[in-house]
Lab assay of single mutants.
Amino acid sequence: MQRVNMIMAESPGLITICLLGYLLSAECTVFLDHENANKILNRPKRYNSGKLEEFVQGNLERECMEEKCSFEEAREVFENTERTTEFWKQYVDGDQCESNPCLNGGSCKDDINSYECWCPFGFEGKNCELDVTCNIKNGRCEQFCKNSADNKVVCSCTEGYRLAENQKSCEPAVPFPCGRVSVSQTSKLTRAETVFPDVDYVNSTEAETILDNITQSTQSFNDFTRVVGGEDAKPGQFPWQVVLNGKVDAFCGGSIVNEKWIVTAAHCVETGVKITVVAGEHNIEETEHTEQKRNVIRIIPHHNYNAAINKYNHDIALLELDEPLVLNSYVTPICIADKEYTNIFLKFGSGYVSGWGRVFHKGRSALVLQYLRVPLVDRATCLRSTKFTIYNNMFCAGFHEGGRDSCQGDSGGPHVTEVEGTSFLTGIISWGEECAMKGKYGIYTKVSRYVNWIKEKTKLT
């Protein structure tokens, strides 16, 4: 034993070699072989497995989906700052455009905790909710729209109204504003409101030439003092309507412009014939205590009207009353817009006519005020429907199939267009061939041609 100890002390290297040989010859039971080890760690190889990531292109799944990435790591994937920024906006807080917040056709661009709407022409605001041009839906104005110097929408209202708090709607500024039905039992019968379409306001006024200088022999019209197929109006439903009495009662109609003036057809009036105007009328054979009678003290036909040349060209006249009318729910003026808007309103496509005229061709006159909704007829169809001249200051309205029309005794009465609950004068009943005849239409004086003249002559002093 002493000898062994001496050998170990003198030859430590020998001992180490012996131990190493023993270990190498022993069977290893701690580690699995290569094949079995792979069965336990069965993990798919990654895209760049075996390579240094710093030297390969980034992978979106590896960089940002398996674990949260930084902007720089995302930049490695896209290799483009702009594309990385677009991805980053949604990656950080989701897609803010998912709810489609942009209105009126706006395009949404996502941002971090926010979004941006790219608005089409005519709109602005956070969600493109603000109209900035009158060309689109009248700028959301209830009545009139004008573009300011910086191309912003400025709404306005006709006389007797003021802008509401929203700067879009119009509200009454006087007790009985024009064009409004205020009798409670008839307010439910107000005709369907007309909503502004998209309009090209630059070209809204037709490029028409008034044929002022045409000389033409007097034409022989049949029954051209021209509501057939209409309905009984309720008291106060058309408070701007008046009836004219002269040699015979209810020979023509008219509309209240203001307390002192009536507008009617020029062919209705004769110099030297006494005319009485009755406002607030409903049943011409009954006294309903809503009527107001006034005498006409002055007749002003349009300066281009000449019955000797043509009885229905420039067929418009103004009547001055001896005493002002007292405005109330049964006696209310009709609204008159400017030339541009009167023309736009007419193009809405349908209007209402009213009167006490004959209820059928050569038949009896109506006792109760009649009204009828009539569609506008395109000019080409209008011209083809008659052998008589249709001037540019006239328009056609009615039904091709016949059966409904204005008729004798309705002449001078109103053709009105309702705009968001307020009625505007767009025409004056003038003439036609018979009444409600198939293929024939009622012919009306186009008020847009005469609004400046009306307003100039009827100013209240």
Score class of each variant (00 low, 15 high):
residue 207 A to E: 12
residue 370 Q to A: 04
residue 191 R to T: 09
residue 341 Y to W: 05
residue 150 D to F: 07
residue 416 V to G: 04
residue 293 K to M: 05
residue 45 K to T: 08
residue 48 N to Q: 10
residue 307 A to Y: 10
residue 177 P to R: 01
residue 38 N to V: 09
residue 182 S to G: 10
residue 5 N to G: 14
residue 404 R to K: 02
residue 228 V to R: 12
residue 130 L to W: 07
residue 87 F to D: 15
residue 278 V to K: 06
residue 427 G to R: 00
residue 307 A to R: 12
residue 309 I to P: 04
residue 164 A to K: 10
residue 411 S to T: 13
residue 154 V to I: 11
residue 290 T to S: 11
residue 445 T to G: 02
residue 169 S to M: 09
residue 356 W to Q: 04
residue 416 V to L: 06
residue 447 V to I: 10
residue 222 N to L: 08
residue 93 D to R: 06
residue 451 V to D: 01
residue 110 D to P: 09
residue 235 P to G: 05
residue 38 N to R: 15
residue 212 D to S: 09
residue 118 W to V: 15
residue 297 I to Y: 05
residue 163 L to Q: 03
residue 17 I to N: 02
residue 268 C to R: 00
residue 397 A to C: 03
residue 54 E to A: 11
residue 78 F to A: 05
residue 368 V to A: 12
residue 86 E to F: 04
residue 318 L to K: 00
residue 41 L to M: 11
residue 96 Q to M: 06
residue 109 K to D: 04
residue 337 A to C: 03
residue 138 N to C: 02
residue 322 D to H: 05
residue 126 K to W: 06
residue 318 L to Y: 01
residue 300 I to G: 00
residue 240 W to P: 00
residue 225 T to F: 07
residue 174 V to F: 05
residue 403 G to H: 14
residue 345 F to T: 01
residue 433 E to L: 06
residue 459 K to Y: 09
residue 400 H to P: 14
residue 9 A to K: 08
residue 157 C to F: 01
residue 280 G to A: 03
residue 11 S to W: 07
residue 395 F to G: 02
residue 415 H to G: 01
residue 140 R to A: 08
residue 113 N to A: 10
residue 300 I to S: 03
residue 236 G to M: 06
residue 2 Q to W: 15
residue 36 N to Y: 05
residue 159 E to I: 08
residue 70 S to T: 09
residue 449 R to N: 14
residue 42 N to C: 04
residue 149 A to M: 10
residue 30 V to Y: 15
residue 100 N to Y: 08
residue 247 K to Y: 05
residue 249 D to H: 10
residue 110 D to A: 08
residue 97 C to Y: 00
residue 365 S to N: 13
residue 357 G to D: 11
residue 353 V to F: 03
residue 155 C to Y: 00
residue 170 C to V: 01
residue 448 S to G: 09
residue 114 S to N: 09
residue 228 V to P: 06
residue 269 V to L: 11
residue 438 K to L: 13
residue 308 A to D: 13
residue 454 I to E: 00
residue 118 W to Q: 15
residue 246 G to S: 11
residue 71 F to K: 13
residue 374 V to I: 09
residue 200 D to E: 09
residue 260 K to R: 08
residue 259 E to V: 07
residue 190 T to Q: 11
residue 58 G to N: 14
residue 140 R to V: 04
residue 367 L to V: 09
residue 30 V to E: 11
residue 160 G to C: 02
residue 45 K to E: 15
residue 262 I to H: 01
residue 434 E to R: 06
residue 288 E to M: 06
residue 233 A to H: 06
residue 363 G to T: 14
residue 226 R to F: 06
residue 151 N to M: 13
residue 342 T to M: 03
residue 67 E to I: 04
residue 411 S to M: 13
residue 80 N to I: 04
residue 415 H to C: 02
residue 301 P to I: 09
residue 184 S to I: 13
residue 284 I to S: 08
residue 257 V to T: 00
residue 16 T to C: 09
residue 38 N to I: 09
residue 10 E to I: 13
residue 90 Q to F: 08
residue 73 E to A: 15
residue 459 K to V: 14
residue 362 K to P: 08
residue 217 S to A: 07
residue 10 E to R: 04
residue 207 A to N: 12
residue 237 Q to L: 09
residue 415 H to N: 00
residue 83 R to S: 15
residue 293 K to A: 06
residue 70 S to W: 05
residue 181 V to D: 05
residue 366 A to G: 10
residue 70 S to E: 12
residue 276 T to H: 08
residue 285 E to D: 12
residue 65 M to I: 14
residue 362 K to A: 14
residue 239 P to F: 01
residue 80 N to T: 15
residue 335 C to V: 00
residue 114 S to M: 04
residue 47 Y to V: 14
residue 332 T to D: 01
residue 36 N to S: 10
residue 20 L to R: 03
residue 29 T to H: 13
residue 226 R to E: 15
residue 380 A to F: 15
residue 367 L to T: 14
residue 20 L to C: 05
residue 123 F to G: 02
residue 300 I to V: 12
residue 2 Q to L: 14
residue 357 G to P: 08
residue 421 G to Q: 09
residue 295 N to S: 13
residue 360 F to D: 15
residue 108 C to K: 01
residue 53 E to A: 07
residue 138 N to G: 03
residue 449 R to M: 14
residue 326 V to T: 09
residue 108 C to W: 00
residue 385 S to N: 11
residue 341 Y to K: 05
residue 437 M to Y: 09
residue 214 I to F: 07
residue 373 R to I: 05
residue 92 V to T: 08
residue 158 T to E: 04
residue 151 N to G: 10
residue 332 T to A: 13
residue 160 G to P: 00
residue 164 A to F: 03
residue 310 N to L: 04
residue 296 V to C: 03
residue 289 H to S: 13
residue 339 K to E: 13
residue 49 S to P: 14
residue 194 T to D: 12
residue 279 A to F: 01
residue 244 L to P: 00
residue 305 Y to F: 08
residue 356 W to K: 11
residue 207 A to I: 12
residue 87 F to K: 15
residue 159 E to P: 06
residue 65 M to D: 05
residue 328 N to D: 09
residue 366 A to M: 09
residue 177 P to C: 03
residue 46 R to W: 08
residue 356 W to L: 09
residue 396 C to Q: 00
residue 47 Y to L: 12
residue 148 S to L: 08
residue 414 P to T: 08
residue 44 P to E: 13
residue 3 R to T: 07
residue 126 K to E: 14
residue 427 G to I: 02
residue 280 G to E: 01
residue 111 D to S: 10
residue 53 E to C: 04
residue 374 V to D: 01
residue 373 R to K: 15
residue 444 Y to K: 00
residue 6 M to H: 08
residue 402 G to D: 08
residue 308 A to W: 05
residue 20 L to Y: 05
residue 298 R to N: 12
residue 185 Q to C: 06
residue 400 H to A: 14
residue 103 L to S: 07
residue 352 Y to A: 06
residue 166 N to G: 04
residue 248 V to M: 07
residue 65 M to L: 05
residue 313 N to E: 09
residue 107 S to W: 04
